[in-house]
Simulated scan of single mutants.
Amino acid sequence: MTGKSEHDDSEREFDYRWARDAPHKEPSARARMLAARWKENPPEPVPFRGEPEASGPRRSSWISTALVLGCVAAIILLLGYTRFQAPY
């Protein structure tokens, strides 16, 4: 009896090679939904790079660089000062 159930399981196992080689592939549910929606109301063309969103004033890159370098210099000076003060 166990031999027959193992044989049934192997027949029911999904064959990925057979599925990939299928001549017709059914689209996913999302693809079908979008196709139906776009048939009645097609989407507007969108440029490759959209317009940047206005999220407020941006700092220039040199200000950001100066801020980062200033923080690194302050940390180096602080570490040097604490090492100088440490009694060895």
Score class of each variant (00 low, 15 high):
10 S>I: 13
32 R>M: 09
33 M>H: 15
72 V>L: 12
30 R>F: 09
21 D>M: 10
80 G>Y: 01
69 L>P: 01
1 M>I: 13
64 S>N: 13
12 R>P: 00
45 P>C: 04
78 L>C: 12
61 S>I: 05
33 M>K: 14
43 P>E: 02
45 P>V: 01
64 S>K: 07
35 A>S: 10
60 S>Y: 15
18 W>S: 13
60 S>E: 15
37 R>N: 05
9 D>S: 09
68 V>L: 13
41 N>P: 00
71 C>D: 00
13 E>W: 04
70 G>K: 00
19 A>M: 10
37 R>L: 06
68 V>I: 15
80 G>T: 03
67 L>A: 10
24 H>D: 14
64 S>E: 10
20 R>L: 12
55 S>K: 12
67 L>F: 09
4 K>W: 12
65 T>E: 07
7 H>A: 15
62 W>I: 09
74 A>T: 05
9 D>K: 09
82 T>Y: 03
8 D>H: 06
10 S>P: 01
62 W>K: 06
46 V>G: 01
50 G>P: 00
75 I>V: 15
69 L>S: 10
32 R>P: 00
44 E>S: 12
6 E>G: 07
56 G>Y: 01
27 P>A: 05
74 A>N: 06
7 H>F: 15
21 D>H: 08
36 A>F: 07
18 W>H: 14
67 L>S: 09
55 S>H: 10
29 A>G: 02
15 D>Y: 02
26 E>F: 08
45 P>T: 01
63 I>C: 05
6 E>W: 07
17 R>G: 09
85 Q>Y: 06
9 D>I: 04
70 G>D: 00
42 P>D: 02
28 S>I: 05
29 A>R: 09
71 C>Y: 02
57 P>V: 03
70 G>R: 01
57 P>N: 08
16 Y>R: 14
60 S>T: 15
28 S>Y: 06
65 T>W: 04
84 F>H: 10
59 R>T: 14
31 A>S: 13
6 E>Y: 10
8 D>M: 10
11 E>I: 08
48 F>C: 09
71 C>H: 04
63 I>G: 01
38 W>F: 12
14 F>Q: 08
8 D>P: 00
56 G>P: 00
45 P>L: 03
64 S>H: 11
87 P>V: 05
35 A>M: 06
79 L>A: 11
36 A>N: 11
87 P>K: 04
